[in-house]
Design a binder for these strands. Sequence first.
DNA 1: GTGGTCTAGACCACA
DNA 2: GTGGTCTAGACCACA
Lengths: 118, 118, 118, 118
Amino acid sequence: MSWQFDNNRPIYLQIAERLERDIISGRLKKGEKLLSVRDLALEASVNPNTVQRAMQELESRGIVTVQRTSGRQVTNDDEVIAKARNFLATAQVRQFAAQMKQLGYTAEQVNQMISEEW
Amino acid sequence: MSWQFDNNRPIYLQIAERLERDIISGRLKKGEKLLSVRDLALEASVNPNTVQRAMQELESRGIVTVQRTSGRQVTNDDEVIAKARNFLATAQVRQFAAQMKQLGYTAEQVNQMISEEW
Amino acid sequence: MSWQFDNNRPIYLQIAERLERDIISGRLKKGEKLLSVRDLALEASVNPNTVQRAMQELESRGIVTVQRTSGRQVTNDDEVIAKARNFLATAQVRQFAAQMKQLGYTAEQVNQMISEEW
Amino acid sequence: MSWQFDNNRPIYLQIAERLERDIISGRLKKGEKLLSVRDLALEASVNPNTVQRAMQELESRGIVTVQRTSGRQVTNDDEVIAKARNFLATAQVRQFAAQMKQLGYTAEQVNQMISEEW
DNA sequence: GTGGTCTAGACCACA
DNA sequence: GTGGTCTAGACCACA
């Protein structure tokens, strides 16, 4: 796994988003054990506290659960994951549509561009 | 005009992006005079230094030009604007497609969602 | 203000609770400016990061709002405060009643003890 | 018996408190033999060391006594238990009254709420 | 080894 | 001066 960060946004948020996407997309399966905070910090070349904060984000959204002495795992609740997927996809479509409209593109043009890009 | 900022990204970048979009979309016409740094700062409830920095961004990309004595204006060069529009649209489509693929959506589903949202 | 902490619970939670109680009870009025993170940290003889974390708790509950460059203030929304008051009082009564029942006291005895203590 | 712990307080203290309450309330009778450390650990899904530490707490307060060869039992001394009950009840009433006063409730309101909750 | 909390201290964006 | 982020590193509770 490669970890590259955008300097203009908090690293902990970028880590949280990356993990959320991995869970939503099924790259990390429900119930699957996550890397420990320390290991993930090593992998991403980041301080453990930064990973810790990313994890807190995911816990507060119920996507990840903690077992105090044996680490963290992806939630077992399919519905939580499905909701997160929906929420994220809808937000992305909405934002994207707004941006393209603003640049003066029509729905047809946009769909055309997407098909070419896909 | 309403100015709302996302706490997680530098404000000067958000201002620069907003202005760039306004220019690309034609809301600000080629050659049009921009608000002064001072006035824009007032409008956005932001420190003039912040607006100043956003302007430097736009100048460095050639989208905005400076007149020593009469402030800044949108470039007169249609081509610069057209290129910026293309560049931005392509980047957005590419990123959006990648994100939706990652969440497991097909091009058809995405086009469907866009049509509904539009 | 005196700040004494219970060694058995996280300091940041104790700070958050204390502030929440001060707001709920009206000791800190709606819209009132809070001490800065740094000043509160000095007052409580605690690291600024610890206060920061307490503040994040309160923000996530909407009880406190941030103005990026001018500090934090108590929410202006009466309803948020009223809800927090209700929530806290109900939780306290429920827990207290359960504990006293468990020790074998009757409602009458408890009410008697409260009247004497009050 | 169900054992659920609050992540924000030491587990050994929570176990000690639970046992103390069971003794005070008579759920565990004077002189009664306690579960072995090992069994209690199993029941609570906790490491034996943690239960051990809880037991030490209770022994130091005289509520539980050790028999080198036959495990631990609840004290036979009624008075120790009675004192513990009184101490705990008084402390709870005092703390509860203080908290509710602080939130601006009157003794009457509180007694009303308790009666409803009981 | 696992997570949780806390400190000391640096550096950034913004007013 | 205000908040926000991050690092390095210590120390704790628990298994």
